[in-house]
């Protein structure tokens, strides 16, 4: 960026000196702008999250105060309320944990061998099969929830945690297959071939040689499938009941009624979000890599 305006106060010097001065000033302005931009980004990113946490710690009166309070003495009353028997958010968090963990473990158990086969073996229509796995990632859950609801209600399965876990496999298996196929491909084939010459069975090679080397991919894909399952609402909304609901469903239950308990809602939100946020911050580098699903290598 070159500017042609010269300061009126500037004493005329050589052209070189002028350019250096100008460059120095403009770089200082640039740096200030850069810093300001970063602050805006930081503030914009964090504010809604912090606003949720701080609201969860306010008394009901403080929440409705005008102007909104920035400083206040906190209270844990909303956390006590939501963890009590009436709302039982604790129970729903446990449900979420069970469902998300089981779905993730199953997805890894089923997905990694499939990814290995797609990466290592040649067979007819392999591309189509790979494409079919991946395309599940693009399918809207609305398309499946209608028939699954009807089928499950005829089989009297609604409310069974296994049903929700099975539904979560529709997106977690593709995530595992997608990321791990790439990962297995990056392992030199020679390793497998050498082991095969030594007489190792394909199962042994997969478990003892390929899988340990593909561990980063397995970790990233499990983190993603856990987060996706933990955050999911649509399936859970229609397929869970009563004490079996997951935490996102519980969070939607507050919404109507005479008074909207904002403190309790934000406390619930905080409890749902905090574990995944901390978890993601710990693995942020891998998370970003995983989110692109290997689209960028």
């Amino acid at each position: 960026m070159t500017t042609h305006s010269t300061s009126a106060a500037a004493v005329p010097r050589t052209a070189d000196q002028l350019a250096v001065q100008r460059a120095r000033r403009s770089s200082r302005v640039k740096a200030a702008l850069h810093g300001f931009g970063l602050l805006v980004v930081l503030f914009g990113t964090l504010f809604p999250f912090l606003w949720m946490v701080s609201t969860s710690l306010k008394t009901t009166n403080q929440i409705f105060s005008k102007p909104p309070l920035l400083l206040f003495t906190g209270t844990l009353e909303h956390y006590r309320t939501i963890l009590g028997e009436q709302y039982n958010v604790g129970g729903s968090l446990v449900n979420s944990l069970i469902v998300a963990t089981t779905a993730t473990v199953l997805a890894v158990l089923l997905g990694t061998p499939a990814a290995y086969a797609l990466a290592r073996f040649d067979f007819r229509r392999k591309d189509d099969l790979w494409f079919w796995f991946i395309s599940n990632r693009f399918m809207s859950p609305v398309v499946i929830i209608l028939p699954v609801y009807l089928l499950a209600s005829q089989l009297r399965l609604i409310g069974h945690p296994g049903l929700l876990i099975a539904m979560y496999l529709t997106f977690s298996i593709p995530v595992v297959v997608w990321i791990c196929t790439d990962q297995f491909r990056s392992i030199p084939r020679e390793l497998d071939e050498a082991a095969m010459v030594d007489g190792a069975s394909p199962g042994f090679i997969f478990l003892r040689i390929a899988l340990p080397l593909a561990l980063p991919g397995v970790v990233v894909s499990s983190i993603l499938s856990f987060i996706f399952s933990w955050n999911e609402l649509l399936f859970a909304l229609f397929l869970t009941r009563g004490d079996g609901v997951t935490s996102p469903v519980r969070a939607t239950n507050f919404l109507s009624g005479y008074d909207v308990p904002w403190g309790a809602i934000m406390a619930t939100g905080t409890l749902i979000v905090l574990p995944v946020v901390i978890f993601s911050l710990l693995v942020s580098r891998h998370l970003v890599q995983g989110l692109t699903m290997g689209a960028i290598k």
Binding site: Y149, S153, N253, S256
Partner: peptide
């Protein structure tokens, strides 16, 4: 305690699944 807006939905879905 269920929000009124989702009560009918809850009943219909519960009844049709036998509960």
């Amino acid at each position: 305690v269920v929000p009124y807006e989702s009560t009918n939905q809850r009943y219909v879905l519960d009844f049709t699944s036998g509960g």
